[in-house]
Design a binder for these strands. Structure first.
Lengths: 66, 66
DNA sequence: TTGAAATGTTAGGTTTACATTACATAATGT
DNA sequence: ACATTATGTAATGTAAACCTAACATTTCAA
């Protein structure tokens, strides 16, 4: 099961979903879906998000047991 | 543009494409496509590959300029 | 208190990741 | 020489990622 800290880190930087989406070239709905864990983004998008949020990809997304 | 070291690391461990695919639950064709850079896998698959190949996701897949 | 901005959410459509099947070739061992 | 295994590659199908558009609700500044 995939978990992530996108919402938490986005808040830390004070970005709106729209702003973050624009920085990584996706819509705010896509950001919302990712924050809710409703789908597993591509590694390309994950890498862009990690760069903008200044963390390692593995610290932004990780797999949990179960 | 997305780059990766899957083929190199797979060789290091002596895995065939089939064996690696089986360990991360995809077909050998999917591994072949990824090695050729023909698509950007999901972060879930990228995390599984990084785990099996014993590297950080960011050291297995990265974005290059251009 | 009003209105804009941010978020939640849903519906319908396009694109792409990934599966299945199949065939061809190269490499290896018997 | 033959069989087996690994790889390359291509066709077709499906599921999921991602888009646009829309409307409702919450939040927050004026």
């Amino acid at each position: 099961m995939l978990s992530n800290r996108v919402k938490e880190l986005r808040a830390r930087y004070g970005f709106t979903q729209s702003e973050l989406g624009k920085q990584v070239d996706v819509t705010r709905q896509t950001i919302a879906f990712i924050e809710k864990g409703e789908f597993s983004p591509s590694i390309t998008l994950a890498l862009k998000l990690a760069k903008v949020l200044k963390v390692e990809v593995g610290d932004l997304f990780w797999l949990e047991e179960e």
